[in-house]
Computed example of a mutant assay.
Amino acid sequence: MSWDRVINATIAAGTIVTSLTVVFAYFTYKDEVKAHENEVKAHENEWQAVKADHERGRRIFSMQIFKEYEETLELMRPKLIYSFSDLYDTENRGNMSQHDAKLLFQACDKQQIPSSKNSPKYTCEARGIASSYINRMEYIASAYDNRVADEKIIKDSLAHQVVEHYDYFRAFVNEVRTQTQDPEAWKPLENFVDEMKRQGVLPAPRPPAGP
């Protein structure tokens, strides 16, 4: 056999080996790609399941918030009506005036600003009730802001009343911020109310607050 034939035979054999190597590498790569796709799909399914559980948990938590709010309001309503009768007055829906907010803030102080005959006679308990109720509303706002509650459930079931009642107590909130020098007091609640208003959730109309 001549050297040319040997060389050609060697080249041909090398070509076959190379082709087989390429084919083997291709099918190996194809199997790896398929395995990776299956792994990605499994992770996607797992993520979808986790996401579904998370959304279900948010809805359940939202309903729990709603239930707790209703229960709290049911307990507080008699005292709210007694101390802030115009909060539930459907005919004269005035918000708290800045003057009345000062009276309420100073209700626990010995030295109080003079009140007119038309001004409410706030007690220290009334101030505590107002603060507790505002705290409860802020709890709802924080749950919404941190996305741990279902936004639609909160908006549809609680936002209207929270917006309306925050507007009623807004002057008191501002008075607390001024007197305590804490501009961030109940800020998450204020942000929630402003956001709800941007989304079209508005309270029932009230006449302008008094002096």
Rank of each mutant, 00 (worst) to 15 (best):
S85G: 08
E71A: 15
R170I: 00
T18C: 14
E74V: 07
N191A: 12
V162Q: 03
N174R: 10
G128D: 07
A9W: 12
Y69E: 11
T18D: 08
T178L: 14
H160C: 09
V148Q: 10
L158P: 01
C108V: 12
K155N: 10
R93T: 07
I11Q: 09
E151C: 09
T18R: 08
H160A: 15
L80I: 00
A42S: 12
V23D: 03
Y69I: 02
K197N: 05
T72L: 13
T180G: 03
N174V: 03
R77M: 08
Y122G: 00
A130L: 02
H165I: 04
Y82I: 05
F61G: 06
L20V: 10
G94F: 10
H43S: 08
K187Q: 14
I140M: 06
N118M: 13
R5N: 15
V22I: 14
L158W: 02
I129T: 08
K41S: 08
V22L: 15
G14N: 03
A35W: 09
I134F: 01
A12V: 11
W3M: 13
M1G: 14
S131P: 00
W3F: 14
I154T: 04
T72Y: 15
I129C: 04
W47M: 13
R58Y: 03
I153M: 07
Y139L: 14
S115I: 07
L158I: 03
W3K: 14
E195F: 03
S83H: 11
Q64W: 12
I113R: 12
V50E: 10
K34V: 08
A130M: 01
E74W: 12
Y166S: 01
V23K: 07
P188L: 03
Q98K: 15
P114L: 05
R5H: 15
F66Q: 12
Y26R: 09
A204Y: 11
L80N: 00
R77Q: 09
Q112S: 02
R170N: 09
K79E: 09
C108E: 13
A13R: 07
M76T: 07
A13E: 08
F24V: 10
K110F: 12
A171T: 00
R170F: 06
Q48V: 04
M137K: 01
N191Y: 08
S19L: 15
V163R: 02
N38M: 14
K155Y: 05
H165T: 06
M196G: 05
M137N: 00
S131M: 13
K41I: 01
T15Q: 11
K117V: 13
S97D: 02
R59V: 06
L80A: 01
Q64C: 10
G57T: 03
P183C: 04
P208H: 05
E164Y: 06
A25K: 08
L75D: 12
P208D: 09
A107Q: 00
P208G: 05
P211T: 04
E195T: 11
E195I: 02
P188Q: 04
D4V: 14
A13V: 12
A42D: 08
A130R: 00
V17E: 04
A13T: 11
T15F: 14
D150R: 04
R127L: 06
